[in-house]
Design a protein around this nucleic acid. Sequence first.
DNA 1: TAGATTGTTAATCGATTAACAATC
DNA 2: TAGATTGTTAATCGATTAACAATC
Lengths: 213, 213
Amino acid sequence: MSANKYIPLPVIKRLPRYHRFLGMLKEKGVDRISSSELSRQMGLTASQIRQDLNCFGGFGQQGYGYNVVMLYDEIGSILGVNNIKKAILIGAGNLGQAIARHMTFSKWGFELIGIFDENPALQGKELRNNIIMPTADAPDFCEKNSPDLAILCVPNTEEVAEMIEKLVESGIKAFWNFTHIDIKAKHPEIYVENVHLSDSLVTLCYQLNSDIE
Amino acid sequence: MSANKYIPLPVIKRLPRYHRFLGMLKEKGVDRISSSELSRQMGLTASQIRQDLNCFGGFGQQGYGYNVVMLYDEIGSILGVNNIKKAILIGAGNLGQAIARHMTFSKWGFELIGIFDENPALQGKELRNNIIMPTADAPDFCEKNSPDLAILCVPNTEEVAEMIEKLVESGIKAFWNFTHIDIKAKHPEIYVENVHLSDSLVTLCYQLNSDIE
DNA sequence: TAGATTGTTAATCGATTAACAATC
DNA sequence: TAGATTGTTAATCGATTAACAATC
């Protein structure tokens, strides 16, 4: 439908932050903002903001700037936060539970329709309106309910790698991946967002260390 | 002490991943690897690996490649994973508990010496060998125990912004920031690693959406 | 020595920033 | 209209990739 112009990855990665800031401005009741004022608040250049937004269309008006609500809605629509997407969660340990309880999935159009865990002690328990099911049931569940996204909050085991294969076969289109398993290598067509928490912590390790020398 | 050559941020961000991969190779008992073989495994170019490593020194040997254990140790030492750094955790809700239980801090030289939460129901309880203390006590605790890092696992409230100010005054040098508060803006000298989980999820939202059009 | 692979310089590529004409 | 600010093109900057001489 759209021109489907190629959008550089760095631009895509900045969209959620634009959306977040515009949401805050909207909350505050600000109704217009210029690229230079927004750049000041977000800590980037006005040029970059205009450049980024113009990948998707001319949302501003010369001499005026951008209408906050309109721009917020436009970016929301580009991101597709209003389209319902079904998600499942694999792993309901500490991290999985935190993700399940902490994230407001609905805000981005995600619906958590299934939670799975290996641990029999957790199976049958309720978490975020879901009854925790055995992990082995996940592929079958996907065949029946066709979720779009799988959230992986499990340790990096061989079985998990196999589970990923089965999930892809069952039609999962995207992974929110908290493991260190490299999904993209085998499945370049699948959308993967890796969250390597330890890598992020290690970066701080380096920076604190640079002080000492 | 060192030449303190400027290291580009993208290089620093790749170091944890190099360290992780070399750790895995070491586990497997691989004793040497060439940049081209490592590049194949990591999904980047051999040029980039050699370029990156040579920011810190010539760790390889022509005609041979790199000694896995030696390179692992070198990168570990660059990152400073063996230097003890004290950390505190602010917020012991779902996310804070997951972080406290899930991360093997010791692997990167971090020691979790204090956990704080606003919620009186949590105060006094044990978490990862720490008794949860009232958040208000954190600045005083920092004066006495001088931790290097504060991990922020709390909602984005005005009080948290004030707490950050106090923590900086009390000598905190780095933040592992799970909130959306912009710490760098006010404190450019402080090391901040932002983990915007929702931004990462929203990126998947965009990509799943791009399928539909 | 010959073969392999590094360290490093040069070329390319892409992203960011600057500039300015278009226009509200 | 004059002033402001966008949309867009051009210039700059930096990061990645390619090439190759050095050398183990």
